[in-house]
Computed example of a mutant assay.
Amino acid sequence: MLFPALEHYLARLQETTLPKATSSEQSDDAELMSRNPANRVWLDSDGRVQGTYFNTTLTSVFQPIRQIAVSREDVNSPTSTDSIDISEAHKDTHKIVGYEGFAHSYSPNDNGLYLWKLLDHAASDDESIELDRLCRMLHSINFYRQSKEGSEAEQSPQNADLYLSVHARLLAAVDSNHGMAFRRILRLLGLPHENIVLQLPTITSTQSWLLNYVLDNYRRNQFRLAVNADTVAQAHGLLERVRPDVLKIDGRGLINDAETQRLLEITQKRGIRVIFKRLEKLRDFESVQKLAEQSFVLTGARIAGQGFFWDRPQASLGVFSASVRVNQSAMASPSQQAPL
């Protein structure tokens, strides 16, 4: 494992009772353990970290974020149409550039159930903060514990970005330094905060005061920020209000029009990554594929996609293909649709 502090923490979790620790280790354990004694963290027989939220057992699953393939990766001049054979685009592969973590209920037989409603039904602000932070801690541990020595692959945990959501309720509930507690946990575990992207929920125009406060605090703690947009028009507004590092846009029903092209021109100039999420059907993928090809030829911009068209969330990163080719039979059925 590439992270000695994390390895030490996992070794301590394997003990039924934590061994007698030094005063500094006791302090560290207090930072990493829940303030609510009913919520605890432990290892299962497969080495996955689980946590308890009241009577619910939680664990992590991950879904890849893939760069949309446009042509051979050795293109020398992406702004020249002569150098790109667009007819070859569908022969290219869609490599992994990041993963998003989701909280699922624990099941010994499968990946459990997605628990996105837990925060909505939390009884108090303190409990919502507790659950939100517990999930991010679980995801970080379960992601980076899968790092392997000597792995140079771009999709490996030590090289890929990890996207973690911040629930809307947490934004208003926290009255102190946003991101400080999570940054401290990452430091205690020796994990790279620079590879973690915090995803903010959709922000309304009436929340500008809150948004500015939250963004400032997360940036002070040196986190990169992603924001979610339901439409391209909404994404345009977020560019100026938020100045994000990443834009995640719903890719269902995408229209490749002047507004969309303008958005990609702006994000390319500002170095903002664009991810089209919820790609589940072939027609949605084809719209994003065409947009990716056109944008790459015109500006050199690369865009990314995420969805069940390629990958279902899984606990193990090893089950995902590092790159995939377009397979029209890979369309997800309605029963496979996931909340992303």
Rank of each mutant, 00 (worst) to 15 (best):
P4V: 02
H8S: 14
L10H: 01
Q14D: 15
A21H: 07
S23A: 15
Q26F: 04
E31A: 11
S34E: 06
N39S: 13
G47M: 01
R48S: 12
T57C: 10
L58Y: 01
T59F: 15
V61Q: 00
Q63N: 02
R66G: 07
V70P: 08
D74N: 14
S77N: 15
P78K: 04
T79I: 10
S80A: 09
I84E: 02
D85V: 09
H90G: 13
H94C: 09
K95W: 12
V97Q: 10
H104F: 09
S105C: 06
D120Q: 13
A122I: 04
A123I: 12
I129M: 11
L131A: 04
L134F: 00
L138K: 03
N142M: 04
F143T: 05
Y144A: 02
R145M: 07
G150T: 03
S151N: 12
S151D: 15
S156E: 09
P157S: 02
V166T: 06
A168C: 05
A172W: 05
D175P: 05
D175K: 14
F182L: 13
R183M: 12
T202S: 11
I203D: 00
S208F: 10
L210G: 04
L210P: 02
N217C: 06
N228M: 13
D230M: 08
A235M: 01
G237E: 14
L238S: 14
L239D: 08
R243F: 08
D245L: 03
N256T: 07
D257W: 02
L264C: 07
L264N: 02
E265C: 05
I266V: 13
Q268M: 06
I272W: 03
F276C: 00
K277W: 10
K281G: 05
K281L: 10
L282S: 08
D284W: 00
F285Y: 15
K290F: 11
V297S: 13
R312V: 06
P313R: 00
P313D: 01
G318R: 09
G318S: 12
A322I: 07
Q328N: 14
S335E: 11
